[in-house]
Nucleic acid binder design. Structure first.
Lengths: 339, 339
DNA sequence: CTGAAAGCGCTAACAT
DNA sequence: ATGTTAGCGCTTTCAG
């Protein structure tokens, strides 16, 4: 049988209350007693029962992680890395992460993740874009919610977000500084707010540099598979635009599609076309030459999110704090300086 | 406040014992009472507290899912799909899945997943190849264990496994039946038992067809990244072998690397080289033409695993049952019939 | 067929 | 500084 608090108490010759206090680092306990208790705890391999604790505290130490199935299965390990980050931090804070997927076509009345219905989570993380209907459905449960990499258009929620606009600027400015003027933006899922923000950053950078954008340099496309999307968009771009010298691909997966298109059309990177991505490069044979990109700290997004959520739970805060995680330019070899 | 069993009892004018019995579908309850109770349960949105239940049953309804970080982050969504399968089935059976990653270089003494230490899982799923040291470390906890897609070389554990040998045969036979004789096997991570089994199937099929295998047709390589591995292996293969007409790539990710190599060297699929993969194709622009492959039912592996594990937990079985999930040949366009 | 009550392991208020 | 105890929500035995 697994040891209980009683066993520890007996072994250490104290009451269970004392053991409990030691467990919670209460300073009213003499260091001598504390030492004795701690010793027994270790000796017996005692770990408090979560069920018992949860029962009295009506708090269970679980955090829900909700993501659309589609996002979770994405080939780029973007969200899986975010998930790992949440796991790491949750472990640190003695919590568990429960993952549930929802359909990206969630409709009102569809079944909700069980940890919401059963209130088996103290708070939930909503990761990536999710249907509005889903957000509506869970509102009434009044659980602490934190969004990651997405904020719903209406409603004021806390979130951990990427500095997309700054990333977009950074990427574009780097291209400009390398002497490029005909810079295309290839969009990916344009309906995603993050992409819009990146696009906005791109536009700001061009404006700042007094570059008048030609027509058709911004190509977007709502296909689901990012790579395919990138491929098709590149196709579209080059039909209309012969003099593009640089491309800003709004996600790394899109960039891979663009690369494929360029290869298929005998355009060399970076000699014919310079390319910059966004997210971070997969260490992948596909990427040749190594892609210059904007790096997003994915694991960190996860850890920050858990910290913030636990904080919201503990303090019962209601102000919708936003954390913007910093991005950074990673220079590799896919951009040619033509100054 | 969330409703408790008392609230339901009061509302339905019965005792809490009765509510509990209804909850467990006990037949001693009159259908009239049952109806009344059920009605209130629904009305109040009552869900039993897991903590309370766990406390009395000393069983928590959690299943641990352990995988190396490396496998979890793989670009092919193989194991994420398996995970989804476990999630689906766990939900069905009113359980939660707790995911934890371990290092693929786990050493004795390294920290174990918390749900093991805290006994916060009724059983655990070990997914993909994990270090022997890890298996040694968890043995003493005496928790029900089930392996997925891997069985440790020593020790007799239950497992849900792929019929790799048959898959290898199927793939090779299809190539043979299409008229190929010079069939190469490109291995990927050869140290993985699954790959060995596929290789074995390949050899059996050749034997059966009385094909004497030339030298250097089996290329393996222990690089980590499957695609890169595939690329390099193809390179190696074609240096030694000019007359190969077909390739069996032991995983789909490896196949993608092979495809890349073939493209880079102006070899057309299937006109110059026929190619078959294993796992299942990613709907991916990279794959052109659509890849003929052996399909592995990934989600099903997850559901089967949870069913078996819960069964082991419930019945306290000790016989190490193995479930071999069926594979199937999916014919697409990457193989040329040269008969 | 239904109810009363003990007890699962823990926390926290209160007592000493 | 430490112990006693009620009670968290549920299951289950035993009584009725």
């Amino acid at each position: 049988m697994r040891p209980t608090i009683k066993d520890v108490a007996k072994a250490a010759n104290v009451s269970i209350a004392t053991v409990s206090l030691v467990l919670h680092n209460n300073e009213r306990i003499s260091s001598e007693t504390k030492r004795r208790v701690l010793k027994r705890i270790k000796q017996l391999h005692y770990h408090p029962s979560r069920s018992a604790r949860g029962l009295v505290l009506s708090k269970i130490g679980n955090i829900g992680f909700i993501i659309t199935e589609e996002h979770f299965l994405r080939t780029e390990s973007f969200y899986t890395r975010v998930f790992l980050g949440t796991e790491f931090e949750a472990r640190e804070k003695d919590n568990y992460v429960l993952l549930a997927t929802i359909s990206s076509s969630f409709k009102k009345g569809d079944p909700l993740p069980r940890f919401i219905l059963e209130r088996n989570a103290d708070g939930i993380l909503i990761v990536g874009k999710v249907p509005e209907a889903f957000i509506e459905s869970i509102k009434k449960y009044n659980m602490p919610i934190l969004f990651i990499d997405y904020l719903p258009p209406n409603g004021d929620f806390p979130g951990v977000l990427i500095d997309n606009e700054r990333g977009g600027m950074l990427a574009t400015e780097y291209l400009i500084n390398s002497g490029h003027q005909n810079i295309a933006f290839i969009g990916g899922e344009i309906s995603h707010p993050s992409i819009m923000e990146r696009l906005h950053g791109y536009k700001l950078a061009l404006e700042k540099a007094n570059i008048i954008n030609g027509n058709g340099l911004v190509v977007t496309n709502d296909e689901n598979l990012s790579r395919q999307n990138g491929y098709r968009s590149a196709e579209k771009l080059f039909i209309q635009n012969k003099n593009v010298t640089a491309i800003f691909a709004s996600t790394n997966a899109t960039a891979v599609g663009v690369i494929q298109y360029l290869k298929d059309n005998n355009l060399n990177i970076p000699n014919d076309i310079s390319l910059i991505g966004f997210d971070d490069v997969e260490a992948d044979i596909m990427i040749d030459p190594p892609l210059t990109t904007i790096r997003v700290p994915k694991v960190k997004m996860g850890t920050e999110a858990v910290q913030l959520l636990l904080n919201i739970i503990k303090t019962e805060t209601t102000t919708a704090k936003k954390i913007i995680v910093p991005i950074e330019l990673v220079v590799r070899e896919s951009i040619k300086n033509i100054n």
